[in-house]
Write a protein that binds this DNA or RNA. Structure first.
Lengths: 111, 111
DNA sequence: TGAGAATATCAGCCCATGATGACATCAGCC
DNA sequence: GGCTGATGTCATCATGGGCTGATATTCTCA
């Protein structure tokens, strides 16, 4: 294959990783990956308070991780697969770069 | 292939994500993906204090993200590609599950 | 239209955790 | 051996961010 020798590694979006790193938010993301849910479902599933969940959902919404879809007086939350796919791609690229670095034992000499 | 219809989605390791989510630590990981470095190099590259870096490196070490390799009075830090690869795989699985959920519009009915 | 449910918003508390400084340790070199 | 530079450890401090309670808003249904 003809990948350029020095591929411009695009690191994972730090802000996105920070948003997803919270345990409750990661749980929400995992739940939403399987099925679209509304806040009530998430309250049942996680056991967290409604207010707490609503705050976290806002963070996820503002970070572009989830989309909302009103349905009567309920609000459905659905994951945006492309955002997660991009993140996954960044980590895959990191892992592959690291593998090459390890395989070729590339290291900067001690000063 | 004979995967069961309901693949058991293994979510990303929350602790690992938390460790990598810190901006400085993510920067360290990105730098180490390209080449193995010792603390002195990381101080130059990041501009952070040596003490601060040492603390973050300990976190990364204890989380199994990096390995250390003493070299005289220097200490080389190298990334463990498998750990990142596993993490990437978890996010890829999440993204694919989410894509299926979106494509088939799978949602839990309002109560 | 009034009641009640579902959800969002806001202010405040408080704790986890990142940053820093002082000190300890260890290796190499004179 | 003594010095110097590289690195790790510890105690402390400060701030960001998560949790909560009170309240607002909006929708459904009787």
């Amino acid at each position: 294959m003809m990948t350029s020798a020095k591929t411009e590694l695009i690191p994972p979006d730090a802000e996105l990783v920070r948003v997803i790193a919270d345990p409750l938010r990661l749980q929400i993301v995992t739940l939403l990956a399987r099925e679209t849910l509304c806040t009530t479902h998430l309250v049942e599933e996680t056991g967290a308070r409604q207010t707490n969940l609503s705050n976290h959902l806002r963070v996820l919404r503002e970070a572009g991780v989830v989309d909302t879809e009103p349905c009567g007086r309920f609000t459905y939350y659905k994951l945006r697969p492309d955002v997660l796919a991009t993140l996954a791609g960044s980590f895959t690229a990191l892992a592959e770069t690291a593998r090459t670095t390890a395989a070729t034992d590339r290291k900067r000499p001690c000063p």
